[in-house]
Design a protein around this nucleic acid. Structure first.
Lengths: 216, 216
DNA sequence: TAGATTGTTAATCGATTAACAATC
DNA sequence: TAGATTGTTAATCGATTAACAATC
């Protein structure tokens, strides 16, 4: 694998999508695919597909294309999906519970070790067999357990404080669902899921489409 | 407002974020801000901020900057947040419930009219005072009610069929949480929230950071 | 008016696409 | 070997940044 320190985030964002399509193809027992055929399925140009993959290595073979199984494995490995991640969820409202449930059932390498909340009504509950602990105990928990990913499902006002605690406790990445932008120390990865922003840009396109219709 | 038919999605994606920062400033009773000050807060260059805003109109004033209240209103209007949207949620698992709850409490212009599921255990329940109806009744419901946005919280295998029904029923936009890519008719907007893809790119950056640490 | 800051044009940078020699 | 298709370089396109005249 080539040096991947400076690969653009546009490329990285496409990798999970490649992987999804390859997974579907695997299930259909397809053995190989050319960048051209993949282009027709996935909607990126064949040229972009080859460029993207060649950031990480020459996974194809001239005259043949790409072996689906092996490309799937390569991409999984590039993304780090051949490793396991221990996660904690802070904020155990509906969204936190949904995430817990979702990762529990669908994401084999990502395990939720514990959930935390300040709400006494939630503390002590078990969600998908994961205990909800008092947020007061987060620091202690992180001293005793290695945690890779902190999932933030609090409101926006608590999010930064929570993140500071998670980072102090040694997480390597934050998956943030709170509708705010966070400050992280160097070396901790951040991925935002800003549902509100997402819904707002949907609203924009809904209206743009309607305006275009009016002009016809 | 200028012709906005060809504004890049990179610009549109930044608008909700501008709006969030402007909202915070409003709460702090700040009246005006220059592109330079806003740049320091939000992290985009002052030049980009001025370029972005000038896609839609000259909202600033030389020597003064931007009036926060009025810029907030302009952006809200560009995004279509001065309008109301009726939504239905299909798939009433944890995630569907979380979205219902979330929009119910936090998103004033976005109202969930009904939720649909195929699971008899869920049909008839009320979630945040919204009734869960039999999915069989979706078509009928959409004939009797105008629905702007369809929220898809099903598994990936059902998602396309659900979307087809929603589009036939006249929705103007789809907010998709199913981990798959969807085919929509012309004129229907689509916004994906691919949680799985998001988690996978987080994994990439976690490992990249670790490798960089190893090299030190 | 003088100073500040926008709106906008021009320059740069980066990402995507096209082309084709290398090679399986 | 001939045909197919990659890997990679070069060309193009689009988005970001810089610069500055316009103007409040």
């Amino acid at each position: 694998m080539k040096d991947n320190a400076k690969i653009s985030s546009a490329v990285i964002k496409r990798l999970p999508r490649y992987r999804r399509y390859l997974s579907d193809l695997q299930k259909k027992n397809v053995d190989r695919i050319s960048s051209n055929e993949l282009s027709n399925l996935i909607g990126y140009t064949a040229s972009q597909i080859r460029q993207d993959l060649n950031n990480f290595g020459g996974f194809g073979q001239q005259g043949y294309g790409y072996n689906i199984q092996s490309l799937y494995n390569e991409i999984s490995s590039i993304l780090g999906l051949d490793k396991d991640y221990k996660m904690v969820i802070v904020g155990t409202g509906n969204l936190g519970q949904a995430i817990a449930n979702y990762t529990h059932y669908y994401k084999s390498g990502f395990m939720v070790s514990a959930m935390f909340d300040v709400n006494p009504k939630l503390i002590g509950l078990r969600i998908n067999d994961i205990e909800v602990l008092d947020y007061e105990r987060l620091e202690e928990f992180m001293q005793d357990n290695s945690v890779d990913i902190g999932i933030v499902c609090t409101n926006k006002d608590s999010a930064q404080e929570v993140v500071d605690k998670l980072c102090a406790g040694g997480v390597r990445g934050i998956w943030n669902f709170a509708p705010t932008d966070l400050q992280l120390p160097e070396g901790v990865a951040l991925e935002n899921v800003h549902l509100s922003d997402s819904l707002h840009s949907l609203a924009y396109y809904i209206n743009r489409n309607s305006q275009m219709k009016d002009q016809d």
